[in-house]
Design a protein around this nucleic acid. Sequence first.
RNA 1: GGCCCCAUCGUCUAGCCUGGUCAGGACGGAUGGUUCUCAGCCAUCAAACACCGGUUCAAAUCCGGUUGGGGCUACCA
Length: 424
Amino acid sequence: MVKVRFAPSPTGYLHIGGARTALFNWMYARSQGGKFVLRIEDTDLERSKPEYEKEILDSMTWLGLVWDEFYKQSDRFSIYKEHAEKLVADGKAYREGTAILLKVEKARDIKFDDQIRGFIVFNTDEIKDQVLMKSDGSPAYSFSCVVDDALMEITHVIRGEDHISNTPKQILIYEAMGFKVPKFAHLPLIMGADGARLSKRFGAVAVTDYRGEGFLPDALVNYLMLLGWAPSGTQEVITMKSAVEKFSIKKVNKTAAQFDMEKLKWINAQYIKAAETKVLTDSLLPILKEEGLLGDVFDRTWLETVVGLFKSRMSTLRDFIDRAGFLFVNDFSLSDEMKAELNKINFSKEFQVLADRLSGAAVFDHAATEKIFRDLVGELGIKSGDLVHPVRVALSGSNVGPGLFETMVVLGKERTVERLRRAF
RNA sequence: GGCCCCAUCGUCUAGCCUGGUCAGGACGGAUGGUUCUCAGCCAUCAAACACCGGUUCAAAUCCGGUUGGGGCUACCA
């Protein structure tokens, strides 16, 4: 039975690269009917923090990467110690002070068949004796990793390319302990737009950053799986179920991929557009409340109409705040830029007439507002567009947005009339 | 420096294993259509096999080298 693991260190937030590694492990496990283990590698007592661990677990859950088994290395120190002692007793390792080091035999080729890259060979002349247990009694990374992978019966170690050179060292440990060596697969790294390594300088690297920006978990996962792998066919927006069916570790490519924010946004927009308005509204609620745009009491039907209006106009949830915000505030005012836009032609008089007529409307729906508007435009002998644009600016504070009459209806008669009267 | 990995449009990639299709798709870009603007939607276009050599009737595809990029080189994980 296939068993894989994702083994993050709680020394920072779960970042995009880690999430992609976790995702590929998860997809491989699911595609093979195997198990997915989450193991927290918190052997560095100095740098490991409980809040980071929580953050990682939350991010994994948010992404939908549920695990079948969970371990923490800090709970297992006695196991590592015991195995290290045994290696000393077997003459495979030796003490140096309070530390324990593995003896590495020279002039030997260590070869392994990487599931993604093919055979890779290292010579042990490049490898010095490996620290197994550090002087402070904690295990070194490679040692705890190997002991756990062996004891947890991990069959496939799928991890980042940055671990390739750790692999021969770890194979040496497997051999010394008489454990079966698992299969290895090294994923290409994810780079920033400048081709350099993804770092805090790049901008958002933590999964939580993307969550906060208003990316949908399914969209982020969909984008991440496209970095280094392509589903057969030309369909890139793909469900997790379908991706798992199509996934093959052998089809993962070897080249590092640059993270492309534009494409992520596009995919996110696809998911937003495809989402049911009801569901999308639910996702928007926390942000709206957090921004103070919505109280505990609100008109759900009205909100859903608004969401429907902006659905095709946003690529992140946060875009909704920027574009539709004018519908949620009453102390509305125009930016200097928009005031200037409005003053290009002075429609002060026309605005008042329009306001008066709209305020006298018996019903305030799309048809009614449009008729009033078009009648006025006809009387004035101008093109409708000439008046549409300034009115949109006056109502929304922006020269772009949904159709004018849709906007009027959701704004409501009162606020529409009021904003028209105060515009100049 | 040493060791290791990698190389197709600006970006993500298909094709490479099992040489022979105008090198396909997507993002982004450009143009046109729809519309009161924007978004969306529809249509069209531009855009790549890093370089050199070898094998072969034939190379993006196989082999070697060069160049370029990346990783590792910790009692950090």
